[in-house]
């Protein structure tokens, strides 16, 4: 049976281009941004579920944040998603999982009322809260599983593999669910020119909190974003040809001095 699937995406700073020394608050836009890495796995998982569920199934994207997040949504539409909405994040405290989850739950109910599956990344690399998917599920009254590496649809039944202390757990799921993905054995498919053209034509409406009937409950207060204390310069020595033995001796002495061996 056709399934209406929602993917929650977040644009996060591209950490390979980030200059921590320039930051005093968590950037939500205005620096090089990218799709949160785990969200790419969520999107690919959703596209696979859509194919498995068959004709009439859709993937709708939701993000809470700045309007510039449209770039991330376009990338996802180019890859095969059908529609997307940006919920204006101006009045949602950045990095507050409880507030964000409440807003996203309202957005699912208001904008994709037929949705039965929500797929998210298990955490975002900016705040690393890792709490939005399960909180959202609780607000919706749905099942949840996080840290998943695979979700499959067999007939009407969803099952998910998640990674825990014990190994890889397989869970069977009844009814509606929020599933949060970590790294999977598959990567996000690349988009073709047709997809890119569709993405350029697709409207990405911006919704206010009032539009979706959301209220904000602040769960946390963000106090400070700080540099990590500098680590002293390490020692790097040559260990090739004639110097290998002496260098290894020096390493052993270092390890012994640190009481590591």
């Amino acid at each position: 049976m056709a399934k209406q699937i929602v993917v929650c995406l977040k644009q996060v700073p591209d950490n390979t281009k980030l200059r921590p020394e320039t930051l005093t608050a968590m950037p939500t836009h205005g620096v090089d941004m990218m799709m949160n890495p785990f969200d790419e796995y969520a999107l690919e998982t959703a596209l696979r579920l859509k194919e498995a569920a068959g004709e009439g199934s859709t993937v709708t994207l939701l993000t809470v944040g700045h309007e510039s997040a449209k770039n991330v949504l376009k990338k996802a539409i180019a890859a095969g998603a059908d529609a997307g909405f940006i919920v204006d994040g101006n009045d949602v405290p950045a990095g507050d999982g409880l507030a964000t989850a409440g807003v996203l739950a309202s957005a699912v109910t208001a904008l994709v009322p037929e949705a039965s599956v929500v797929v998210c990344g298990t955490s975002a690399l900016d705040v690393s809260g890792g709490m939005v998917p399960a909180m959202m599920a609780e607000k919706l009254g749905w099942a949840s599983l996080t840290q998943c590496k695979e979700v499959t649809l067999n007939g009407e039944t969803l099952s998910a593999k998640r990674v825990s202390e014990l190994g890889v757990e397989t869970h069977a799921i009844t009814g509606n669910a929020v599933l949060a993905m970590m790294k999977c054995d598959y990567e996000l498919r690349s988009s073709n020119i047709k997809g890119v053209m569709k993405a350029n034509k697709t409207q990405l409406p911006i919704k206010t909190l009032a539009d979706i009937g959301a209220t904000v409950t602040a769960g946390i207060t963000t106090k400070q974003l700080a540099q990590r204390p500098e680590k002293g310069d390490g020692k790097v020595i040559e260990a090739s040809n004639g110097t290998t033995d002496a260098a290894v001796d020096e390493l052993v002495a270092f390890l012994k001095a640190q009481k590591l061996v």
Binding site: L23, M26, G95, L125, I220, T221, A226
Partner: peptide, 17 residues
């Protein structure tokens, strides 16, 4: 205090409720 931005910085947060 927690690591954030892929472990590169430290974020301080408090409970608000």
């Amino acid at each position: 205090t927690k690591a954030c931005l892929a472990e590169s910085m430290l974020l301080t947060q408090a409970i608000a409720t």
